[in-house]
């Protein structure tokens, strides 16, 4: 069974379409790049899978279920913004994740935070933007989820931080799980992707494995991306 499946998924904001009859299915155990320029519908798709938006038409299924309480137990989501209360301590967030997510590995999170020099007593508001992002990633990747939905995890960070983030994702994800990474920074993540979904103006324009794509086109994913989205 597909871990994430979209069937004629459409989302419009007023008259503006963000997703238009998008259909695809992702199998378990894959690292998938959700690729497209800004405004192509990547974030909308991820939000729909997390029940943060309601589809206008069509449906999206997570492990065969419509987004809801049961799917949230198996999806680990990294949004493109900071979602922790600035007045919370890092230790409070550890307690919160332990309380709410059965698959959360507190020991693993503590280890990752310690490697970054982030102490439990620190308030989130005292951390720098980059450190907050890394801390949030540590929490998200410390869950033994079936599906990781990572929205722009490497957007707006320096190359060194990018390397750290990608290494953290690769080192910590559950290998039976599927990792969906949305980005337009293809060159940085191309080497870790098993398959790609190209979105353009809310439509799925290409969905195949990276090996197939390279064989078919004789080009790298980054080169194909530049060709598809040429201005």
């Amino acid at each position: 069974m597909a871990i994430l499946e979209a069937k004629d998924l459409t989302k419009r904001f007023g008259q503006t379409p963000a997703l238009e009859k998008a259909s695809f299915a992702l199998e378990p155990g894959r690292i998938v790049g959700l690729l497209g320029p800004n405004g192509s519908g990547k974030t909308t798709l991820i939000k729909l899978a997390n029940e943060l938006l309601v589809p206008t038409e069509g449906e999206i299924l997570v492990d065969g279920m419509k987004p809801g309480v049961e799917t949230k137990k198996i999806v680990s989501y990294l949004p493109d913004c900071m979602y922790f209360d600035d007045h919370m301590k890092v230790g409070d967030c550890l307690e919160l994740f332990t309380d709410f997510y059965e698959d959360f590995d507190a020991g693993k999170a503590q280890e990752m935070l310690a490697q970054l020099g982030i102490k439990k007593e620190l308030l989130f508001k005292t951390l720098s933007k980059g450190t907050k992002e890394k801390a949030q990633l540590c929490f998200v990747m410390s869950r033994h989820a079936k599906l990781y939905l990572l929205d722009e995890p490497i957007g707006g960070v320096d190359p060194a931080a990018r390397d750290y983030i990608l290494a953290t994702i690769l080192k910590n994800y559950n290998e039976d799980a599927t990792v969906v990474i949305s980005t337009h920074l293809i060159a940085d993540i191309e080497k870790i992707l098993d398959e790609v979904v190209f979105l353009s103006w809310g439509r799925v324009v290409r969905h195949q494995s990276t090996d197939e794509l390279r064989e078919q086109t004789g080009k790298s994913v980054d080169e194909v991306f530049r060709e598809v989205y040429k201005c």
Partner: peptide
């Protein structure tokens, strides 16, 4: 803040109805 703002991304992804 927690239902419609930035923190809503955490609130609404908790396994609660």
């Amino acid at each position: 803040r927690t239902m419609l703002g930035r923190q809503a991304y955490l609130t609404h992804t908790l396994p609660a109805s």
